[in-house]
Design a binder for these strands. Structure first.
Lengths: 83, 83
DNA sequence: AAATATTTGTACGTATGTATG
DNA sequence: GCATACATACGTACAAATATT
């Protein structure tokens, strides 16, 4: 059973990793994901989106570059509290 | 013929992409690569280092994140002039 | 103008290592 | 020790932007 579907259009001119990053950013913006809460694991995001691992990691990298999340090896990626 | 050897130790605790990023950053620091000059292409860096393309790109991403270079698709990666 | 080559971008898949729980 | 989760590194294929012929 798939945790939750995240629809990605591979034919869109918007790259798949960007679509996923936008989706997750929206989750944070709207408060569906709150400060200090973990994002779904890479495996969960792979299952939910159908994307490859590298593509999922690329999406998370965007969020990290934008200061929205922080990642800790072995633990997970967490929503960054407002500065 | 290989443009120029860049020695990378895959057994080091320092990741290969970091070793390459450090090497290139040093080239910029010392002025071997100057402002607005292009870095070697990804293909050149692959040949010179023996690393895979993804690893080379990861190294360049570090430089970009640190504001040392800017990349333009179809053209190349250029040393960023001082702000 | 058009075709070709070069260069970076995206996406896939695999394997192994490292850190945490 | 074991399971989970992120990190590193390899390789492949095709797309898109730019430069060259």
């Amino acid at each position: 059973m798939v945790a939750q579907e995240i629809k990605i259009d591979l034919r869109s001119s918007i790259p798949a990793y960007k679509q996923l990053a936008d989706y997750l950013a929206a989750q944070i913006e709207t408060g569906a994901l709150r400060a200090d809460q973990p994002l779904p694991s890479e495996s969960d995001l792979i299952d939910a989106s159908g994307l490859a691992r590298g593509t999922v990691r690329q999406a998370i990298a965007v969020l990290r570059d934008n200061g929205l999340v922080v990642t800790v090896q072995g633990r997970g990626t967490y929503v960054r509290p407002e500065p």
